[in-house]
Design a protein around this nucleic acid. Structure first.
Lengths: 234, 234
DNA sequence: GCAAAAGTGTTTGTCGTACACCCATGA
DNA sequence: TCATGGGTGTACGACAAACACTTTTGC
């Protein structure tokens, strides 16, 4: 599977522009990122983010969605947003390539088919990565963690319906520490991000009260805590 | 003063990459942005952000600082940060140009010399702008407003030393509504962002208590309100 | 003394956290 | 009825906003 970075097209005189995505999902109670293993130089066998060259007729977001579609069923992507530009002159050897990096999210209840060279890796235990891709993965992780605090971005990591216990597992994996289910439910509900479906799941084998199913009220990104001090007179 | 966008160099086969900055300053109690008036097609006479082509040996931040140095004394810039990429295929006519946009800030007590084609314009009353530059100015404004709430970014708009009354004017202009001096001082002090110098200014002509001078404790950007809900157990 | 401007003290409401307590189920 | 896991009620602390009150100056 050739990758634009490795091409070295002779008639590419100018700086190239590529798009790259850190696609994150909570799998096995860990935050993981989708990487593919390079089959040729440079950086053979090292692990690389999905993406590729920006085409003439697309903007960067259209481009990253198109290129991700070659790796995974793009309908499974619940959220995509721009991170920042990585532009160190020699971040890729030989050619000048400026990269626009994205964060992509996949809900925890789907297991999209991926190509043979592609694997999920825990963000906290990355394999050897190509170029500056580790830095981009960490930027994606940090953006996700920040937004879990003040937006409803959890919708993009969670299934359509879930118990508070499951949601707690997802938030704990993404944030890297345990969160209390009591306050998770209360904060998200007070902010209007979470609502009960009215339905419940059967109790587990060890007994216990049957858990209620919840859903996010919106599946679009919204800022739920404007955290604005110095607010305008309302 | 030729601008890269207008060049149309014949041997530019590939997509170009430019950097642009929305440089903001509070002037005359208004948030204003630095723009230069184009002297040639396309978009003649329309107002444009400073910036230009990314050179082969620089990253985007080095590039925008270099290009701003051609417009203003770059030492007067108190803060520069990346905003996002603007990449609509025809955002600039004829050539494909991807832009990385920046926010730049200048303290309110300096009046840097600028070229003859360059003027400051109130962000709320922009003249006709070139290409998608209005959108970039608004993105810069919005980023500044957000960060005034949860960081110490006020240091980049304020003089080295100032009275609470002056700082109130700066925040009010930047945010677009009146803020109360009492709480401004209290919040910034509690967060450790502000400290008294111990010195005072003479009272005004109408009398009144002489105001104390304050300074920001740091002149580097710091997040003063982590606004993190779901905090890790401390 | 009085007006004007600056700065402090106090109250109130909101919100996140912690923790005790109650609920619903299986064995 | 007891253990287990789920959900709610309540108390506490932190903090921002509003506003009254005190301080320090010029006239």
């Amino acid at each position: 599977m050739p990758h634009p970075n490795t091409a070295g097209h002779p008639n590419e005189s100018d700086a190239g522009h590529e798009v790259l995505a850190g696609v994150l999902q909570v799998r096995d109670d860990q935050l993981q990122v989708m990487l593919w293993q390079r089959a040729r130089e440079p950086d053979v066998h090292r692990w690389s983010l999905p993406g590729g060259r920006l085409a003439a007729t697309e903007d960067v977001e259209t481009s990253i969605r198109r290129q991700l579609a070659e790796k995974v069923d793009v309908h499974k992507l619940s959220h995509v947003e721009q991170l920042s530009v990585f532009s160190a002159p020699h971040r890729v050897p030989d050619r000048r390539v400026v990269a626009t990096a994205f964060l992509g999210l996949v809900p925890s209840d789907v297991d999209p088919e991926v190509p043979a060279d592609t694997r999920w890796h825990p963000v906290e235990a990355l394999p050897p990565t190509a170029f500056d891709h580790e830095q981009i993965v960490l930027a994606a992780r940090d953006r996700l963690r920040a937004k879990l605090s003040y937006t409803n971005i959890g919708f993009a990591l969670a299934p359509a319906e879930f118990t508070v216990s499951e949601l707690r597992g997802i938030y704990s994996a993404a944030l890297g520490y345990q969160v209390a289910p009591t306050n998770l439910q209360r904060v998200l509900t007070r902010r209007g991000a979470l609502e009960p479906t009215g339905r419940t799941l059967p109790a587990g084998p060890a007994g216990g009260r049957p858990p209620a199913l919840f859903r996010f009220t919106s599946r679009d990104l919204q800022v739920t805590d404007p955290f604005a001090v110095f607010r305008p007179p309302s």
